[in-house]
Simulated assay, not measured.
Amino acid sequence: MDSLGYREEQPDRADIDTMPGATLLVFGTNWCGYCRAAHRPLETALAEYPQMRVVKVEDGPGRCLGRSFRVKLWPTLVFLRDGVEVTRLVRPHKAEPITTALRELASRPSS
C-alpha cells in the first residue's frame, strides 16, 4: 500500500493560525479507504493550483490538531486564509467541490 502523504508529525495550532495566505489542511490517514478514494479527486483539483500550500496531517485518537478543528470523519479538508477557516469539505469523492472551494479560497484577498 503506497503512502498518501499524511504526516505523523503535526504543526502546532498556533503555527497554523499564523500561516499567511491560502492553506489547505487535509486530515486523514494513509490506510483509510475514504482517504484513498478522495486522493485522486484531490490531486486533480490541486493540479489547477500548484502554488497552494497543502498540509496533510495524520489524524486519530490523541491527535490535538484534528481535535482543535473538530474533525470527526476522514478525510476532512479545511481551507484556510491567513489562518482562518473559509470552508471545509468532508469525504469529498469528486474533484468539482474541491476545485470550487480552492477557487473561492484563491480569490479571497489576504488580510
Rank of each mutant, 00 (worst) to 15 (best):
G21V: 02
R53K: 14
Y6V: 03
L77V: 14
R67Y: 15
V84E: 11
D12L: 15
R67D: 14
A95H: 00
H39N: 11
Y49C: 04
A95Q: 05
F79Q: 10
L105H: 08
F69A: 05
F79C: 10
L102R: 00
C32Q: 01
G66D: 11
A37Q: 12
W74A: 09
R53Y: 12
G5F: 03
D59T: 13
V90T: 07
G33Y: 02
T100R: 02
V84W: 05
L102Y: 00
V26C: 04
E8F: 14
A22R: 04
T23V: 03
P50M: 12
A47T: 06
L80H: 13
K94Y: 12
C35W: 04
A101M: 07
K72C: 05
C32W: 01
Q10F: 02
V54M: 00
T23Y: 09
D82I: 07
S111C: 12
C35Q: 02
K72T: 10
Q51P: 02
L4N: 07
L25D: 13
S3C: 10
W31H: 06
R81W: 04
V90E: 04
F69D: 05
S111D: 13
L65N: 10
D12T: 07
T76H: 12
Y6Q: 13
G28Q: 03
M52D: 04
E58W: 07
P11M: 02
T100K: 01
Q10N: 11
P61H: 01
P50D: 10
T44F: 05
P61E: 06
L89M: 03
P97K: 09
F27E: 06
C32E: 03
D2S: 15
S68C: 09
L102P: 00
R53E: 07
A47C: 05
T76E: 11
R40Q: 15
L25W: 03
P11Y: 00
R40G: 08
G33K: 07
A37P: 05
H39G: 00
Y49R: 06
R13Q: 10
T44K: 15
L77H: 05
T100Q: 04
M1C: 09
E104Y: 07
D15F: 04
A14V: 06
R91M: 00
G33Q: 03
Y6P: 01
I98Q: 02
P97E: 03
E85A: 11
L65S: 10
T76R: 09
D82M: 04
F79P: 00
D12N: 12
E43K: 12
W74P: 10
I98G: 00
W74M: 12
E43D: 14
P11Q: 03
S107V: 15
V90D: 07
L42N: 06
C32P: 15
T44M: 15
D59C: 09
R70F: 11
M52L: 05
A38F: 13
V78G: 09
R36I: 05
K56C: 11
D15S: 13
L73N: 14
G60M: 02
R13E: 13
G5A: 15
A95Y: 00
P75Q: 13
G5N: 11
V55D: 07
D2C: 12
A101T: 13
T44G: 10
H39W: 10
D17A: 15
L46A: 08
T18K: 06
R63W: 11
T18A: 07
L65V: 06
V54P: 01
G60T: 12
E43S: 15
P50K: 07
A101W: 11
A38H: 02
G33N: 06
A95P: 00
D15L: 06
N30V: 13
G28C: 03
E96Q: 09
